[in-house]
């Protein structure tokens, strides 16, 4: 948590200093094209181009017709732009079971992601709040197990969860998958919220206590309104994480409820028929679109989210 914050403030303070130095009394401007700068920018530009290349190829391929793909080179822009692959990927592509395209998977993913995000954040925020302000005996032990659990490979918990869900009658349903996502999202989110609530001034909490406010009252009236940014960070983390999930989707749901990632894989890696690379790339882009939009819109908050997950409190 501390690190992304300093990352931002460090950048801000550099800007501030730069502002003060404006005008003739500043230091002599440095030459733009020093050897060092050429190396730095040259390297970064080459690397950036390399990173952009797959995205570019996806877009270009998805806009070409199949004959053009077979003839030419994958980097060439389309001679004749066609949106047919996109339409086909969305509504006609076959998975081997049915041929109604990715749209089904998209709506399944929406139905999985929305409740999973809401439930996991609700649980983790209340939990983090209890751990930060209402510590009870044994709380630290459970929290330690929880954090440790984040490192345990999912594989050892997959089958016990199948049994638990089957006993509850939820195996193969969307509800079951929502519970699974809430469980596996809990360590990181609880850590995120606990650290955030711990960083809020304790006087606030104490004052509310003196005024007679209880557990839930303080949570809803004081903590919640003060912590919107961290809720946004948690949301970004969860929406991308759950949207991108493949393993849980394939294990805990059944074919007509498969999330978009599973369906995408079934479409592209289906062994039947001729490979339609343009449709495949359109489908791949469609699946990647939701996390990409979130990423490009949220900017620094996304970075904050992953850094918060990485840097322990």
């Amino acid at each position: 948590m501390a690190n992304p914050a300093t990352l931002n403030t460090a950048a801000a303070s550099i800007d501030a200093v730069g502002g003060m130095l404006d005008g003739p009394q500043g230091p002599k401007p440095r030459k733009r094209f020093t050897r060092n700068n050429i190396i730095i920018y040259g390297t970064l530009i080459v690397v950036a181009l390399y990173y952009l290349l797959p995205l570019y190829v996806m877009v270009v391929t998805s806009l070409k017709g199949m004959p053009e793909i077979r003839m030419g080179n994958i980097f060439a822009p389309p001679v004749e732009i066609t949106f047919e692959p996109w339409v086909k990927a969305w509504s006609e592509a076959c998975t081997g079971l049915n041929c109604d395209g990715l749209s089904r998977g998209f709506w399944n993913s929406v139905q999985i992601t929305v409740p999973s995000v809401v439930l996991s954040i609700a649980i983790a925020s209340v939990n983090g709040y209890a751990l930060a302000n209402w510590r009870f005996k044994g709380a630290d032990l459970f929290f330690a197990i929880l954090i440790f659990g984040a490192f345990i490979p999912y594989q050892v918990m997959l089958y016990p969860l199948v049994i638990i869900l089957r006993e509850l009658g939820l195996y193969g349903s969307l509800t079951g998958l929502v519970i699974v996502h809430s469980i596996f999202g809990m360590p990181i989110l609880t850590l995120l919220f606990r650290n955030y609530f711990t960083s809020l001034p304790e006087e606030l909490f104490k004052a509310a206590r003196v005024d007679g406010a209880g557990f839930w009252q303080i949570y809803f009236q004081i903590m919640l309104p003060m912590s919107l940014p961290i809720f946004v960070v948690a949301m970004i983390l969860q929406v991308t994480g759950i949207w991108n999930d493949f393993l849980f989707g394939v294990i805990y749901t059944k074919p007509d409820l498969y999330p978009m990632t599973v369906q995408l894989n079934n479409i592209v890696n289906s062994v039947q028929g001729v490979k339609e690379y343009n449709v495949n790339m359109a489908a791949t882009l469609l699946t990647g679109l939701v996390p990409l939009i979130i990423y490009f819109v949220s900017g620094k908050l996304f970075v904050r989210g992953i850094a918060a997950g990485a840097v322990k409190g």
Binding site: I74, F246, T284, Y295
Partner: peptide
């Protein structure tokens, strides 16, 4: 930073399929 980090927002499925094509 935005350019170098964006693949991290994508799922492994998308990553794998793009590189399968490339």
């Amino acid at each position: 930073r935005t350019i170098i980090l964006y693949p991290f927002a994508l799922s492994f499925i998308v990553t794998g399929l793009v590189w399968q094509w490339l």
